[in-house]
Design a protein around this nucleic acid. Structure first.
Lengths: 380, 380
DNA sequence: CTGTTAGCGCTTTCAG
DNA sequence: CTGAAAGCGCTAACAG
């Protein structure tokens, strides 16, 4: 191996008519100059421009090693003038992770996830990283594809909002720090930030029971993840605590991803015209219940009270306002991102789960049941 | 330079007790194996494993050049077994762009942007790329920081939803394909997908005028971007078309980013108790108007009609439903991403702007004005 | 069809 | 304090 391996760098910079103030840019590459994709400005270019070496330029710009103040100033000036922007891939390739943080959600159109994403983005940006967003639309295969993309780009860490085990396992298997949000998959080795679904549901249903309701329906998306399951558990626990017997017929479990939840709610209410209150386990269910109640002209809370788990904008704008279990979603995004960043910055130690407490917000949609006989919400 | 420049690759793979089916992984690196960050699996490793060269492995896995079927199969098997995932940064560094697509929005908590982001994500993912999401919270400096990050990561292209000129110029100056969404900055050289604000507003206000309203207020966020400006323009155009004189006092322009729009609306209504209808120029304004109308117990549409530009979930759930100018937001995200991808895939030619037409959705919040004298919505 | 070679732009020892 | 040199993992000629 010879001594002169590096590319020769003569022929540019160094005295090419820059005597009068360094106005002449080498090759007309001023940012905002020519149209179309120009060659990107590299460290070597600014080094040539200043007449120093790549490594010195690197040190000056990265602020790590020692560089003479005067030289450093000239390098910085050249970098600014040429519009230098360091190339992340090169830096990443060198060994550091990309600084990208993956966020996998299951439905961005749902305000819940949008809020969550907003919270995550805020904290991530404040820490100087970027969010790579993938929406799997509830499709496990998409989630896995997303997870692969995250490891391919050497994401510094990943946040998983409701997705299955497979994606989590893949990531953890590749050594990528993972924080699960809103739900725990049960995969070992990842942190989690969740909301105490059970106690939130218990409180909501307890409120209904305290008002005197005895036939309270619960409408759930699914009971296979811990969110749905724990909300149902809370519903049951509240009944037990109040000494009110449970009736299986009052549980409407839609199984995963129903096409038209409102129709299912309608059929359910037709079959159970005597319910006096409904507990909706999430915002999608709440919307379906609300719409159906409105459609059949059932007065809320006159004929039927209702409580929602999750509190969105529309719930406080409608008349009457919906009594709801408010989840601090945005904050949950903040916290999850925070936890992930701590983990990335060398936080070792055991995986931890942080649990946030939801809060029951009382509004107009709940009241004591009508005592008049026959005041049911049966068939429209 | 000697002939043997590559690192020696003996000592691993090649006959290390793999006779019985290749079960022994070199060094126990099975995905899902040990805890903690393991060394990542590289092309060289799988090449060694199979006993071939890096480039052959590359060709086999990338599907480009020629590789003997049998060898190819063995390479693929090894890759799968070792959990190989190609390193994007290396590929990017080599010259290809990262495949990442930047999306800059100004407020993800606003459902409008969330829907937009969802639409973008869908199309981008379908094209095999990823979305890097940055929310600048309406802060130009943040937007510029985001734009820099996009060029640093060699984003294949960037989508800009309402942000100022500076970020756009920076990106365009670096040769990054840019598509502006919802608003045009006026910077030359970038495509745009927007909604015809003026005609939407004209139609909405025209509807109000046709119902007989003569004192119609308009509430706008800002009139410095083309969105707000064009909606105001539409408001005026409708009046001119109907031969109804314009009154300056009926225009409430909040200037950018007001803290508490509802309070401003309240003051405005106190000062103009004779308005019979309000046109809100976007969803934030609509919420403020709606809340304030409700607060002072003004019947809608009895005392005051209202129309919103932008149609969100809550607007069709409240009673009465809001008459609104529906913008195909999700679709706008799709289209913008589509346009960007076309541009990335070599679409040259002139920058183009695609305009989507909004649609007026009639609901219960608009009716003919009350003819009774003194039926105004003045001070609460 | 397969292997060797030469970098992409950057960071990081390690000598001067 | 500065510069030369060695790669990070991958792709893309170009020889065999």
């Amino acid at each position: 191996m010879g001594a002169v391996a590096g590319r020769a760098r003569g022929g540019r910079g160094r005295g090419a008519g820059r005597g009068a103030g360094g106005a002449a840019l080498s090759g007309g590459k001023a940012p905002g100059g020519g149209r179309g994709r120009r060659a990107r400005v590299t460290l070597r270019q600014i080094a040539d421009e200043v007449g120093t070496s790549q490594s010195t330029a690197s040190r000056a710009l990265a602020g790590h090693g020692y560089v003479a103040p005067e030289l450093k100033a000239r390098i910085e000036e050249a970098a600014a003038r040429l519009g230098y922007v360091p190339d992340i891939s090169a830096r990443t390739l060198k060994g550091h992770s990309s600084g990208l943080i993956g966020l996998l959600v299951s439905d961005l159109r749902n305000q819940f996830y949008a809020q969550l994403a907003a919270g995550v983005e805020q904290t991530v940006a404040a820490a100087g990283h970027q969010v790579v967003l993938v929406d799997d639309h509830g499709d496990e295969a998409e989630a896995v594809r997303g997870a692969k993309a995250f490891v391919a780009m050497r994401a510094a860490g990943v946040l998983l909002a409701p997705v299955g085990r497979e994606a989590t396992e893949l990531l953890v298997g590749h050594g990528t720090p993972v924080v699960e949000v809103d739900r725990r998959s049960g995969v070992r080795g990842c942190d989690a930030v969740i909301i105490d679904s059970e106690s939130g549901a218990r409180e909501a249903v307890g409120h209904l029971l305290a008002l005197g309701h005895r036939r309270i329906a619960v409408v759930v998306d699914e009971t296979v993840w811990d969110t749905g399951r724990n909300r149902l558990k809370g519903y049951r626990a509240a009944h037990r605590a109040a000494g009110v017997p449970l009736a299986r017929r009052l549980v409407l479990d839609l199984g995963l991803r129903p096409d038209d939840p409102r129709r299912d709610v309608a059929a359910f209410l037709d079959a159970n015209p005597d319910v006096t209150a409904v507990f909706a386990a999430n915002n999608v269910m709440a919307e379906a219940v609300w719409q159906e109640l409105k459609r059949r002209g059932a007065a809320v809370p006159g004929r039927c009270s209702m409580v929602s788990f999750d509190d969105l904008t529309w719930m406080r704008v409608v008349e009457p306002g919906l009594t709801a279990v408010r989840q601090p979603v945005y904050e949950m995004g903040n916290r999850a991102a925070q936890l992930l960043i701590e983990r990335i910055d060398g936080g070792h130690g055991r995986a931890e789960t942080r649990t946030l407490r939801p809060e029951l917000v009382l509004r107009g949609s709940t009241a004591a049941p009508a005592s008049a006989p026959g005041a049911d919400i049966g068939a429209s």
